[in-house]
């Protein structure tokens, strides 16, 4: 089925942003170009919606390198947080994505401390005992939360679940590749990159290469693979 015009525009906008973030990650390299056939950069609501989908990764290069983010990205992150305050009964991934953006803002912009309640973490019941396919799917959606444990950031309950269920996430990584779901595979791969005790037989490094080879033309996949490699190599400040 053909995508509606709005969906295609949003997808293009997310890819555009992902491409920009991936290019700014340490190690350089050129991210695959986003489809800019829509003409020009996204503006207004579309840009905010795209930023919301990319979540905390909007400022990932700055988080990893502890450098100041580009002013426009920082402003975009702030505007996105203001524009989409999660409803109390929102889906857990929405709540956590919002929490992740707030944490990212605290990490890159110490001049703007949020109120204490912004640090409160949503619950993790929905994934703590979830079957491993669902767990992996949800974690992949929340891949921007997969950051090195050494960061001066508060402990994240989702990361704790991911670390405790490394074998399940490894199985989910295999399943995602078997299903040719490159975005899920890349997201799961990023979680594994920050986890201990990944089974050696998984071949995570070769797996990340494979995901990039097969799905890396999509900047969102490429961004997650690049992030995973950096996290795995501890190639950040």
């Amino acid at each position: 089925m053909k995508q509606s015009g709005t969906t295609a525009l949003l997808q293009g906008a997310v890819q555009d942003l992902a491409s920009r973030v991936a290019s700014a990650l340490p190690g350089g390299g050129h991210a695959p170009p986003a489809d800019t056939s829509a003409g020009g950069g996204p503006r207004g609501d579309l840009e905010l919606a795209a930023a919301r989908l990319l979540g905390a990764d909007l400022v990932l290069p700055s988080v990893l390198q502890r450098t100041a983010p580009a002013e426009d990205l920082l402003a975009l992150l702030r505007r996105t947080l203001d524009a989409f305050p999660p409803r109390p009964r929102a889906a857990p991934t929405v709540l956590w994505s919002h929490w992740g953006m707030r944490r990212a803002l605290r990490l890159v912009d110490v001049s703007a401390p949020g109120p204490d309640e912004s640090r409160a973490q949503p619950g993790v019941d929905w994934i703590a005992d979830a079957p491993w396919p669902l767990l992996t799917h949800q974690l992949a959606v929340l891949a921007p939360l997969a950051l090195p444990a050494t960061l001066p950031a508060e402990d994240c309950a989702v990361a704790r679940v991911a670390r405790e269920r490394t074998l399940d996430v490894s199985r989910g990584f295999v399943r995602a590749i078997r299903r040719r779901d490159w975005q899920q595979a890349a997201g799961a791969g990023r979680w594994l990159a920050v986890s201990e005790h990944v089974p050696a037989t998984l071949g995570l490094d070769a797996g990340l290469d494979f995901v990039e080879l097969m799905g890396g033309a999509d900047p969102r996949v490429y961004l997650q693979v690049r992030a995973a490699r950096l996290l795995r190599a501890r190639a950040f400040v």
Partner: peptide, 16 residues
């Protein structure tokens, strides 16, 4: 041990 680790992923994807 290898089979016990990875069979769930293969079984699930084959049945899916």
């Amino acid at each position: 041990a290898y089979l016990a680790t990875w069979l769930p992923a293969w079984l699930t994807t084959c049945l899916e």
